[in-house]
Design a protein around this nucleic acid. Structure first.
Lengths: 235, 235
DNA sequence: CGATAGTTTGACACAGCTCAATAGGCGTGG
DNA sequence: CCACGCCTATTGAGCTGTGTCAAACTATCG
């Protein structure tokens, strides 16, 4: 059993001090000694939008925490049709434990910063620290819940409902902001919702002409009637 | 009924001796003492097809292992549109740890037998036995992989490809059987693939008239050309 | 042998896709 | 500051795959 030290930031690596993953992410499972060990072999990266992080059928030898930005997880059919199957934000853990080969692509949707560590060290730590596995289990269960909600959207909602559902949870309930930057291009939104770019665009302009949203600037959207938007999401 | 005791089954509850969950399922994480404790508070149930196991927005106070049969996990929109978001077989663990309220429905698709135990005991055991959490994490990761594959099917495949993909992995590669019973009705298949009953039926007859499958008996299907079927699944 | 639930088949409508053209945003260079 | 080009987004016209509605067929079981 490990004893957590309650003195704030005592003995905690500089790299980790202001890191979100230490509080809400998987690193919160580690005690200062483990953090120091991990920090020695970690490296921070910044990635440009559009850059591929993990390729399909590639062997993965490192895992990462997302520190900022948006990472999209995609899967493709042989003829190029693509589907986004997950979005990851800070402080999500990025990688598929217990599998050497990736079955999905990961790509930076925006500018992204990552904290990466070698595969082997994480797997060793998982064996040593049940709390780490516990956090991973919780994140995985949340991702599974999200994936299943999304399957309903993909399988059973109309284009109008899909687009409304996409905008609805994009809203950050904490800030109560009705104005925000879309982290995805129209093409990404289409791949997310199982639609074409054109259909996404048409549905957005429909929401605009119906007075539910304002499109300031392609990426920048303001929702003027949250309730009416929610009413169109198919519940 | 007498059960022969040997080294392997020494001290193992009768209830568990021939149970698949003890080998490949979560119970494999437990030592004989824990098994005895759990067996005392477990109960085996048999459930008729169509019976609801867990209702949406119900509080869940027990978890189960699937011992036989097929359980379908569904989600519904307010107007009744439904989507199957998961299928569970033996020896899958059924239930959503760390959440009191269920966001999905579980229903017996075939005759199902379950081994159920109270919520509290499992959660206590999870705290005591990291191996149990480890197995749960692995099952959850597999379910997430499946869900994501499925999202590609729901979002990007045509009706023909959806039906072909449904039949394809239904084949048990172990037995190399090309003849099998569908565990789902046409309505279930439609809810699984995000289609209507009619479209599913039309695509099946198309596969039949094209000579890829034989439909013996509604539920009983024989695949005559596995390669041609795979070729239509959209890869 | 009739009743009932599940399945197939048909005719038609429409949502969303395809292809094509236009418009807007933004950086670069004159 | 404007002109140009590039990339992304919008808009339009037409087509097609899949949904809708309705009817006929089939299996299963009392």
């Amino acid at each position: 059993m490990t004893v957590r030290q309650d003195v704030h930031s005592a003995g905690i690596p500089v790299l980790c001090q202001s890191c979100e993953a230490r509080h809400r992410g998987v690193c919160g499972a580690l005690d200062p000694d483990q953090l120091v060990g991990l920090a020695k072999i970690s490296s921070k990266h910044t990635i440009e939008p559009g850059v591929e992080l993990i390729g399909d059928a590639e062997t993965v030898d490192s895992y990462s925490n997302v520190l900022s930005g948006v990472v999209k997880l995609t899967k493709s059919l042989s003829d190029g049709r693509q589907q986004i199957v997950g979005l990851q934000f800070a402080p999500d853990f990025l990688g598929r434990p217990f599998k050497v080969e990736s079955a999905i692509n990961a790509e930076a949707a925006t500018a992204v910063s990552l904290c990466s560590f070698p595969r082997a060290s994480i797997e060793r730590m998982m064996r040593e620290s049940p709390e780490l596995e516990h956090r991973l289990l919780k994140q995985t269960l949340n991702e599974l819940d999200e994936a299943r909600d999304w399957m309903v959207t993909l399988g059973r909602k109309t284009a109008a409902e899909k687009v409304a559902s996409f905008l609805d949870p994009t809203l950050d309930p904490a800030t109560n902001a009705t104005s925000f930057e879309l982290p995805l291009t129209r093409a990404d939104i289409a791949d997310f919702l199982g639609l074409t770019i054109e259909t996404v665009s048409r549905q957005l302009t429909r929401l605009r002409t119906d007075g539910l949203i304002r499109i300031e600037n392609n990426r920048h959207v303001t929702v003027t009637s949250l309730t009416r938007l929610a009413g169109r999401s198919g519940a």
